[in-house]
């Protein structure tokens, strides 16, 4: 039982990073209708910027996180401004491929600046643990879950109560009606990208601060947030959080019981569990757990 709870806790910590990334996907998808493959690149960029701020500039860890999120948000908004805005009105598949291109530009840029070595981010959490009732909680994991909860609450409050959040919801619901009300679609798109990039950066730093350290492959780990988005429903922010947690739990439990239950499926089967779960969900509930069914009007 202890082992099971321990694995569940690891799953929640992993799942909350996925939830952050998936939330970013959903924000961009809802407001612009684009599946953003560059999210993994932004995540890696945010993590490496956090490393620079924390290790090279010796800023406090909290300040480093904030600055990295801000910088990533600027880069995200910059992508929207420089590249994506030119693609307005183009078929969606062309725009999706642009984001794939951006992902593959970001990765080598990152390795060119920071190299391929595994880096350790200077952070106050390290590998400290807290023991409670026979369970061992990593301080980093507790912080990840706490930060994610705070950010998700802030995210929903922003969309519910702030004027800009309302403008974004309106644009997602009906772009033309929003324009007619004087809402600037450009601003909404840029802000969506900025929010998504900041969320990705936060998730990136949370991943990098762990015992595994920071390596260029971190961007590809983030691709597992795609299944989270599909499982939850592409257009549902709540679904993204739920999907992230489900995927994280599934992955951590498979890893925990690899030797007992999954040895037949080969080593490291936990890496592909998110994708298998995604295919199962697509089979039984194609619009995701909380997504809205697509209504077609001719």
């Amino acid at each position: 039982m202890t082992a099971f709870l321990q694995n569940c806790f690891a799953g929640l910590a992993l799942g909350s990073t996925y939830a952050l990334v998936a939330l970013g996907f959903v924000v961009i998808f809802k407001s612009t209708g684009v599946i953003n493959f560059a999210q993994g690149g932004l995540l890696a960029l945010g993590a490496y910027l956090g490393y620079t701020f924390s290790n090279n500039l010796l800023l406090g860890f909290g300040v480093a996180i904030l600055l990295a999120c801000l910088a990533a948000a600027l880069v995200g908004a910059g992508f929207e401004r420089i590249v994506l805005r030119r693609m307005v009105g183009q078929p969606p598949f062309a725009v999706i491929m642009i984001t794939i291109g951006l992902l593959f530009i970001l990765e080598p840029v990152i390795t060119a600046i920071w190299g391929f070595d595994n880096l350790q981010v200077r952070n106050p959490w390290n590998i400290n643990t807290v023991e409670l009732g026979g369970l061992v909680f990593g301080v980093k994991d507790l912080w990840t879950i706490g930060l994610t909860t705070a950010v998700v609450i802030g995210f929903f409050a922003f969309f519910k109560y702030s004027p800009l959040g309302l403008a974004m919801r309106v644009t997602a619901f009906d772009p033309e009606a929003a324009l007619a009300q004087g809402i600037s679609a450009r601003r909404v798109y840029a802000v969506s990208w900025a929010i998504a990039a900041a969320l990705a950066a936060l998730a990136g730093i949370a991943m990098a601060a762990g015992p595994g350290g920071l390596s260029p492959s971190i961007g590809f780990i983030a691709l597992a947030a795609f299944p989270a988005m599909i499982v939850g429903g592409m257009d549902s922010p709540g679904g993204a959080v739920l999907g992230g947690l489900v995927i994280g739990l599934a992955e951590a439990l498979t890893r925990g019981y690899q030797d007992q239950l999954f040895s037949w499926a080969g080593d490291n089967v936990s890496i592909i569990v998110p994708y298998i779960l995604m295919i199962v969900i697509l089979l039984i509930r194609p619009y995701g757990l909380l997504g809205t069914k697509d209504v077609r009007r001719v």
Partner: peptide, 23 residues
Amino acid sequence: FALRLRGHYLAIVTLGLVFVGEH
């Protein structure tokens, strides 16, 4: 799996396929 839905699910499902395939 991917194509009975509208939209661009194929891109994501085939992304998974590359990883499942490598495994």
